[in-house]
């Protein structure tokens, strides 16, 4: 079964947080409790955008023990494929929506003696839930959060109020730089590092941690990739006996779903591996955009992750 079990919810609140970010709160439609979750988990939000079915993953940011509702924050992406614009423009309190059960691809390592969190921009959302979960159980943590300016520093004040000097804020436009090398050099043994933010920040933290000699098992990244736009391409689904065109703002997975093909998925962000599909024939170049396939799989064009990856060339036939 693709996608797994669902939660039927109703939008309870829509709150504009700043110029770019809006927060949504969902409650169970039957008035009951939602499942507790673990800090770092996301949910996949199903949207019916004027006939186009969109399924976008968002980190859960509310208190994991608050089973009366889930909260997400969505950053408006004017150049994106339309999911965030739909959330900002069309989702209103009282609307019925469907969420996936929480899935965690960015979990806390509960063995850590200390958790060091590094967030950039909207990458703050998983840490809102993680810091709440740790505060409840007395876990030791430190959060370093960089944004452009105070006006865009969503939840900075409430984080400071809740966790005091365990929270450090940096504003790029004021010339504050997150002192990464220094931070990484003075952590106690048993510290785990977690980073969520724009791609440039992930790469910066990844290379700084390697330079500082951090073990890979102690360094964690939120690897989501929003499916990018690209040129339309044709694909043949061998088992289903269908040939489709994937539109420029559509993912291959979405094109299959729109054609009524039940393809497996979980994260829809190239991280979980659930949608991995064998390539039967490839005359052209697969644009691999996932974090799942091995470099060998990518180089040989024998597999594709339809949730994020695209194709350029003459023929693509996949086993679906």
């Amino acid at each position: 079964m693709s996608g797994g079990p669902k939660l039927n919810v109703r939008v309870a609140e829509v709150v504009k947080v700043n110029d770019l970010i809006t927060r949504f709160r969902f409650v169970a439609r039957d008035g009951g409790l939602l499942p507790a979750f673990s800090g770092g988990a996301h949910t996949v939000v199903e949207m019916d955008d004027n006939g186009t079915r969109r399924l976008n993953p968002y980190s859960l940011m509310s208190d994991p023990e608050d089973r009366t509702g889930y909260e997400i924050s969505v950053r408006r992406d004017d150049a994106g494929r339309g999911g965030s614009l739909y959330m900002h423009r069309h989702v209103r309190p009282g609307m019925d929506m469907v969420l996936s059960h929480p899935v965690n691809l960015f979990p806390l390592d509960n063995r850590a003696r200390k958790h060091l969190f590094i967030a950039g921009g909207i990458g703050i959302t998983p840490f809102l839930a993680m810091t709440r979960q740790l505060a409840r159980f007395g876990g030791r943590f430190e959060l370093h959060y960089a944004t452009r300016n105070p006006a865009l520093c969503a939840y900075g004040d409430s984080l400071k109020a809740a966790h005091g000097d365990r929270v450090h804020l940096y504003f790029d436009e004021q010339g504050d730089t997150l002192p990464l090398a220094d931070l990484l050099s003075r952590q106690p043994l048993g510290t785990h590092l977690y980073c969520c933010g724009p791609k440039g920040m992930l790469n910066w933290v990844r290379s700084a941690a390697a330079t500082a000699g951090w073990a890979t098992h102690a360094v964690h990244f939120e690897e989501f990739t929003a499916p990018a736009t690209g040129a339309p391409f044709a694909v043949t689904l061998e088992r289903s006996g269908k040939t489709l065109t994937v539109g420029s703002t559509q993912s291959l997975l979405e094109a299959m779903e729109a054609a009524g093909v039940d393809a497996p998925y979980l994260c829809r962000g190239g991280a979980c591996g659930q949608c991995e599909t064998d390539v039967v024939r490839c005359d052209g170049r697969i644009d691999h955009r996932d974090h799942w396939l091995t470099p060998e799989d990518m180089a040989t064009n024998t597999k594709i992750m339809p949730c994020v990856s695209r194709f350029e060339g003459r023929t693509l036939v996949i086993d679906r």
Partner: peptide, 11 residues
């Protein structure tokens, strides 16, 4: 193992 790592809450 691959199957289990994808095991979802509620399923």
């Amino acid at each position: 193992l691959k199957f289990l790592l994808k095991l979802q809450h509620g399923a």
